[in-house]
Design a protein around this nucleic acid. Structure first.
Length: 555
RNA sequence: GCGGGUGUAGCUCAAUGGUAGAGCGGCUGCCUUCCAAGCAGCAUGCGAGGGUUCGAUUCCCUUCACCCGCUCCA
């Protein structure tokens, strides 16, 4: 599928616009037009219904370890700054980056690795180096990636120090691989470090801070002390409200708390249409359960969330459930899976994340109780500052849960299915886009653009069309239109040839067209046309609202 | 953030140092009894700012946005 054609259709038909377009646009921000907002609302409403409002807590759902409760939440975008300190975002989102003045590349400070090389200079063909033979040794530092093999490091270093490859084993002694920040703590300065892609030392800049969270000011006279942040995820609002929800709503663990809302991340490189945006919407569940059953719940949510996308029309071939490898996992997580879709803008064989389902253990609740935990520790311990006190103080509130039946108290473990509403919407759009052929009035096949959206997601469920604009057909059609509008979003169109109107509806994904013709006026029936098959059949005009509702719901 | 490319109507594109045109789409009317192209008419644009010039959509600079590659992606 040609992405440009979809982007063009989205613009042309009012699904998506660039933000602030009349001012030239704004990188990483997108607006939903009249049809786009309907589509995205339908995605969110399908999610909310299927996960929250339509949840049956009385039955044990297929694959679920037990019955469970679900509750909703809608919390603020701006929260107490301490939330982000304890969640770990404050530390993580203030990434330090190092630029290389020579190669013009940028590296994450904490992801640059170095090895210290001990060199016997006489093997160098570079006189500058080899003349140091009297010193016996030449020390240098070389930036390297962690997975780089010793032989590769030797090869690169050999090239930089003019040492013949056959001599490298003799010429070098290599020290352990270290992270650059650790090395600098030992007193080595950046001036002695050779960048990964250049020959001379000293091309790396001092580490500079990048703010990946959007900062704002609370209070009209706000200074530095009044800094707050736009949330980079909705999840933390759920954690900090966990006790409120439990205490106020009679739900019991196992329970999922769900939230849909905007989040903000200062992405370094927004790209690929709405796929990576700086302002985006999440659909998140934090599912709280007993530690013993958490693994079973993790499996349950992973499978259920995958199935949800399948049910709404993403095909198995283009949707994968990818379990993270051990080294990708956070230290405290015992499992994370991404639900990924083969977006057409990605290279063949590559998938982009729609949703992450993560086993987060008790990291979040405990961090908000005790203070930010150090994710590197096991068992998890509070991260301490230089003064030996917690680096970021927690709330001090008890967020544990008392199980009345089992008479036991525990800190729930959390399974987090975190979905991107914009990414899901984009995936559904990409999947829906089809070009096929449909016969014209002479029976000749003509090209047709059709969005084969799932009827639940389609912005408009049905269009009502008088076959011609006379003989009372518009009046009959308008009556049906008004009846449909009470049930769902319908569209009335009496302009031009009916074939043209059908095609217009095809292009915006309307699954059904109802056409009023001469027969309607005599026997009260209309035709229903199916978007994908082009098949038509007659039903009674009065039955339209019920019939179309049935079709849309797939009953 | 770096390198390369692009920016003209709603969309796809054309032309030009002398104030822009087509196709499709849109709107109005006519025609039309089931799958976009019949007739008539109408509307809409040089991404933004600055410079050179008598005059800039065209040349130069800056900026913004988009695309490709690199980098990044908790």
């Amino acid at each position: 599928m040609d992405m440009d054609k979809l982007v063009s259709l989205c613009k042309r038909r009012g699904f998506l616009f660039q933000s602030s377009e009349i001012y030239g646009g704004f990188n990483g921000f997108w607006d939903y037009g009249p049809l786009g907002v309907e589509l995205k609302r339908n995605v969110k409403e399908a999610w909310w219904h299927d996960m929250v409002s339509g949840h049956d807590e009385l039955s044990q759902l297929p694959g679920a370890p037990s019955t469970f409760d679900m509750a909703g939440l809608d919390c603020t975008i701006i929260m107490h700054p301490q939330v982000w300190k304890c969640s770990g975002h404050y530390d993580l989102f203030h990434d330090f980056m190092v630029d290389c003045k020579e190669s013009k590349k940028r590296y994450r400070f904490d992801q640059l690795y170095v090895v210290r090389l001990e060199v016997t200079p006489k093997f160098s063909t570079n006189p500058e180096i080899s003349k140091r033979a009297e010193f016996g040794e030449y020390w240098t530092t070389l930036a390297a990636t962690p997975d780089e093999q010793k032989a590769d490091v030797y090869k690169r270093a050999g090239g930089k120090l003019s040492i013949r490859s056959k001599n490298v084993d003799e010429a070098f002694k290599i020290s352990d691989v270290k992270k650059l920040p650790d090395l600098l703590k030992q007193g080595v300065t950046l001036a002695d470090v050779i960048g990964p892609d250049v020959n001379g030392a000293g091309s790396l800049t001092e580490p500079r801070e990048f703010n990946l969270m959007f900062k704002t000011i609370v209070g009209a006279l706000g200074g530095d002390d009044d800094a707050a942040f736009l949330r980079p995820e909705t999840a933390q609002g759920i954690f900090v409200n966990f006790k409120n929800v439990i205490d106020s709503s009679r739900v019991k663990v196992p329970v999922g708390i769900a939230q849909i809302g905007k989040s903000f991340r200062n992405e370094i490189t927004p790209r690929n249409f709405t796929f990576r945006s700086r302002e985006f919407e999440q659909m998140e569940i934090e599912f709280f359960c007993k530690p013993e059953s958490s693994q079973a719940w993790y499996t349950y949510w992973r499978n259920r969330r995958y199935q949800w996308y399948l049910d709404l029309g993403l095909p198995r071939e283009r949707l994968q459930l990818r379990e993270h490898h051990a080294e990708e996992l956070s230290h405290y997580s015992t499992g994370t899976a991404d639900i990924e879709y083969a977006f057409p803008f990605l290279p063949a064989g590559e998938f982009g994340e729609l949703e992450g389902v993560a086993h987060r253990g008790d990291f979040d609740l405990r961090s908000h109780m005790e203070g930010k935990l150090n994710p590197e520790t096991r068992p998890l311990q509070v991260e301490l500052g230089p003064d030996g006190k917690p680096k970021h103080r927690g709330s001090g509130k008890d967020l544990s849960y008392y199980d009345d039946q089992a008479k036991e108290r525990f800190i729930p473990h959390v399974i987090e299915p975190s979905a991107g509403a914009d990414r899901a919407t984009l995936a559904f759009l990409c999947e829906a886009y089809h070009e096929d052929t449909a016969p014209d009035e002479n029976g000749k096949p003509q090209e047709r653009v059709v969005l084969k959206l799932h009827p639940r997601l389609a912005p408009i469920k049905a269009a009502v069309l008088p076959l011609v604009k006379k003989d009372g057909m518009p009046e009959a059609a308008q009556k049906i239109y008004r009846a449909l509008k009470k049930q769902f979003n319908a569209f009335y169109d009496d302009g031009g040839a009916v074939g043209r109107r059908y095609r217009r509806q095809d292009e915006i994904g309307t699954p059904y067209c109802i056409t009023v013709d001469g027969q309607t006026l005599t026997d009260g029936t209309v035709t229903v046309r199916d978007r994908d098959s082009l098949k038509q059949w007659r039903i009674k005009a009065d039955d339209c609202p019920a019939e179309i509702t049935k079709l849309v719901k797939g009953e």
